[in-house]
Design a protein around this nucleic acid. Structure first.
Lengths: 230, 230
DNA sequence: ACCTGAACACCGTTCAAGT
DNA sequence: ACCTGAACACCGTTCAAGT
């Protein structure tokens, strides 16, 4: 009784009371605005208007903070349903949406990885994964292959965002915009004296947007998965 | 004349003279033995038997150090030639070899990414990329698709190593070995009260090795690329 | 119960000085 | 030319003390 009726105060000294979840949400939203390297206990505390020490009342340490942020990140992913009868189109839309989701917090995956945070802790994530596996089963994949295809799908999208979109969306300081939107990227410019005929010809093509590159990756993924159905 | 005949000493105080390349090599090899988070200017200097300040005579800063390490990493990748007439088998072997190469220095890609180091700086890397594009052209892909397929191939392998192999090969402290080699991983264990039929059945299958999972990814990739040939 | 401020052991980087 | 050692501004984390 008393433990239920006596509620935690919702405010303290003019600002909202911190909770484990509010701290994690703040960390996640911080990642939407700044690079992962800028997320420190001190900078987050400053943004919340408390001392760094205060955060340790809600998370165990920096690794735990990132764990909470990753969980909230997963809970915010609400994909559309997948209809097995038109799975190709639906899977394409599903992946486009997942890409947009990852892209909202660039570096989240890499950060969790570098901090040894294991993903898929949130029930919503498990439900989404289960549904994706279900579609692959329905189109005729054996259960094990359906699981593999699910992992491959998520890994492809996450890899595309981390390796392709993240550097594109948050250019490293000291590179001008023209270089960044070029395709092939400047690092594929052929050095003098090298005989690299294909790269040379690609350099002469119109630059390509990440979006059309992503569509090609989707073509490969979807056709590749379809080929596993026997 | 004199600037050529007067060579740099190869040793100093009993240890080999440092160079930009030897420092980068040391950093790369350090990544083969320790996690990326352990690679600091101070720890690397200690391993080389010099003061941290000494490294700054050869690299500009930590980011530059990682740039050099990444270049040497690329120069060490010596893939076998690809024969267009049996491109499926050759591409499979090519990717297995590339995976092994990445795996020798887990975290190299993620580290370069988090430090905003742009990849593909070494001429050897450019030659390998050009050759891979060449095979895709020879099997009938338009040049632009050949370039896309090349990027997709490398990104798939890099993503697999960083997201799948790296956590597997270097388990986070505090997880026992049994959990790690399970498939599905422990984070896909179905919580009580949740109705996730497919995940539940997958949990009952025999655990799967990363190697067979990688072969499935290769099946999807190769069949998917083949489907783009018209 | 939850906070602050000082402190500790790290880190990257720079300065001044040695040889 | 290349090094060392001290120093500075950071970081994560902990301690002791406040309210």
């Amino acid at each position: 009784m008393s433990s239920n009726s006596r509620r935690r105060p919702t405010h303290r000294k003019g600002r909202a009371t911190l909770t484990r979840e509010s701290v994690g949400t703040a960390a996640l939203d911080f990642l939407g605005r700044h690079g992962p390297g800028e997320l420190t206990m001190r900078s987050l505390a400053a943004e919340l208007g408390v001392s760094p020490r205060a955060l340790y009342n809600y998370v165990e340490d920096r690794r735990d903070l990132i764990t909470v942020a990753a969980e909230i990140f997963e809970s915010r992913w609400t994909p559309a349903a997948l209809d097995p009868s038109r799975w190709r189109d639906d899977l394409r839309a599903f992946c486009r949406d997942l890409r947009a989701h990852y892209r909202r917090h660039p570096g989240m995956t890499t950060l969790a990885l570098s901090e040894n945070v294991t993903p898929a802790r949130h029930p919503a994530m498990l439900r989404n994964v289960d549904a994706l596996i279900g579609v692959f089963v329905r189109i005729g994949l054996p259960l094990r292959d359906a699981y593999r295809a699910c992992m491959e799908t998520i890994r492809m999208v996450a890899g595309f965002v981390e390796f392709q979109d993240a550097p594109h969306d948050r250019p490293p300081a000291g590179l001008d915009a023209a270089d960044l939107h070029a395709s092939p990227p400047p690092w594929l410019t052929v050095p003098d004296g090298e005989d690299l005929p294909h790269l040379r010809r690609i350099g002469e093509l119109d630059p390509e947007s990440p979006d059309t590159l992503f569509e090609f990756s989707l073509d490969v993924l979807i056709d590749g998965i379809a080929a596993q159905v026997r």
